[in-house]
Structure formats: structure tokens, C-alpha cells
Design a protein around this nucleic acid. Structure first.
Ligand SMILES: [Zn+2]
Ligand SMILES: [Zn+2]
Ligand SMILES: [Zn+2]
Ligand SMILES: [Zn+2]
Lengths: 132, 132
DNA sequence: CTTCTAAATGTTATATTATTACATAATGTT
DNA sequence: AACATTATGTAATAATATAACATTTAGAAG
């Protein structure tokens, strides 16, 4: 079970927005959407995003500079993330595959590195875009 | 064998700089370093970087907005990249592990996505930083 | 060698993404 | 109440990346 975090006002506004959007959102698009709720400055958005990433409620899609709500709410995998990204329609979804996460979490090589976190992004074409 | 590409003047200047640096470099730090060679504008740097990424001579470290020379010059893996990143000293190295790349290249799930590319970033502490 | 085309370059301006710095307020703990 | 921690508000600015347009260079085709 994931630890329950009491989100602050700004954190809640921003998390709800991202969560309801169902897909990745960019920081300045978030900013635009929450201005009517009194969040006026980029920093207010980035601070909430940082915190939400830290506690695992959202993840950053690094290749897109965008943020998506965690789609595995019941498990704590914010340090082991995998995404599937359609290069045509930009649809993103979080991959939840226990064999994959086990394989990557246990990965080690002879470099002497101690790995504590990973992020994997797969790119390709989704079902819809393939058949166009 | 990787296809031989004749790099253009700017591409060669920028590739040589990144390659010789031995680590990841950021676009504007590259720009600063090549100004004495006549490359004056960000776009000149970004165009060369885009091309070098496309042909696999360099890779972008997405989580760092930085570019590193491919450390697997003999193989064509620009569409299947894996990196190890030290969160303390920011040392980055390209992981060349055939089992890992085979596992990921063959990965598929029931989402209907057809994967053609992936990028994996491992984070942790390198040997040196661990023992501090 | 000439014509055509694709790729690369040069230049200016601008868009997008993210952080620094400083002041204040709210929340939780002892 | 005193203290520490976390969150907020605001302004300015830094860092990263692209748009638009003109020109030049390098290859391919005839
Ligand atoms: Zn998640
Ligand atoms: Zn698609
Ligand atoms: Zn490589
Ligand atoms: Zn290190």
C-alpha cells in the first residue's frame, strides 16, 4: 500500500487536473488551466509538480517534458517507471508488467553502480495509428 | 557495421567536441565551446545535434537535457539505448548488455503497441560516490 | 559541365521549459 | 508558546529549444 499523502491546496488542484485529463500534460498548459483557480505563476506549478513526482502521484515523461498521473495507484513504483509512447498520436500509458519491473529492478552489471531507480520509455505506434 | 556518414563541417566540430569530452554535454555549453570555430547560434548547434542523434553518433540523455557520444560505435543501437547515471557526480555511461537489449527489443505486451524504439535510464550511485 | 534536388548553413527573433531569490503564511511538533 | 517544516505568493531571469526566411554547398541525373 502506498503511503497516504495529504495534498496541499495547489497540489490537489494540479493533481486532479492531470488525473482527469487522462494523459500527459505540460507545465505551462497546466498553468493556463489553473489560472482561474488562483495559481498564477510557473513556480507554483513546478513546485506542486515536483512534490507530486516525489511522492509518486505523477510521473514525468522525460522525452516529452510532460507529466502524467500514476496509473498504478495501489503500488509504489515511482522509482521504477515504464511508459509506452505513440510517436504518431502522442498517447502515453504507463506499463505495468511485473516481469519487466522485476527484470529491471534486479538488473546489475559489472560497472560497480548501485542502481536505485530507473525510467524506461518505449516508442512506437499504437493500435489506432498502426492501422492508418 | 554502422553505415558510414560523412559529417558536415558543423556536425564534425560538434561531434568531436562531445566525443572528446568523454561525458554528456549540454547544448548551450557546446555552443559556448564552438563559438571560436564560427558557430554562433543555438540553431546551428541544435541542427547538428538532431542529425547526430538521427544517425546514432550521439544520444540524448533525456533526464538531463544533455548529449553524449555513442560508446558502441560498432553496433547500430541508436533505437535501443540504455544509460547508467550517477545521481551524485552525474557521470553517465552507455550500457552495452546484449541480454538486456535483447530482452527489451523483444518486449511486447497486450496493448497492441508496436514498439520500434526504447530508451532506458538507470539512476544510482557510482563506485566512487558510493564509498564517500 | 549543367541542371536539379536535397542537405546544410547563417541569421534574427521568439517560444518553451525551468529556476533563483526573497517575503510571507500555514502546518505540525515539542 | 516556541520552533521547525512545508507550502505559498510574486517578480525576475535562466536555460532549453524552435520558427521563419535567405543563402550556400554537395550529390545525383542528364
Ligand atoms: Zn506509476
Ligand atoms: Zn497513436
Ligand atoms: Zn550508442
Ligand atoms: Zn558518482
Amino acid at each position: 500500500m502506498q503511503k497516504e499523502h495529504n495534498l496541499s491546496k495547489n497540489q490537489k488542484i494540479i493533481f486532479d487536473l492531470i488525473d482527469k485529463s487522462g494523459g500527459p500534460m505540460k507545465a505551462y498548459s497546466i498553468l493556463f488551466s489553473v489560472q482561474k483557480k488562483g495559481i498564477k505563476a510557473p513556480l507554483q506549478v513546478y513546485r506542486a509538480l515536483d512534490k507530486l513526482v516525489e511522492i509518486g502521484k505523477i510521473h514525468k515523461i522525460e522525452s516529452r517534458n510532460a507529466f502524467i498521473a500514476c496509473q498504478n495507484s495501489s503500488c509504489q513504483i515511482s522509482k521504477a517507471t515504464a511508459f509506452s509512447i505513440c510517436e504518431s498520436c502522442e498517447n502515453v500509458s504507463e506499463i505495468s508488467n511485473s516481469k519487466l519491473s522485476k527484470y529491471l529492478s534486479n538488473f546489475s552489471d559489472n560497472s560497480g553502480m548501485k542502481y536505485s531507480k530507473y525510467n524506461l520509455e518505449f516508442f512506437g505506434l499504437c493500435k489506432k495509428c498502426k492501422s492508418k
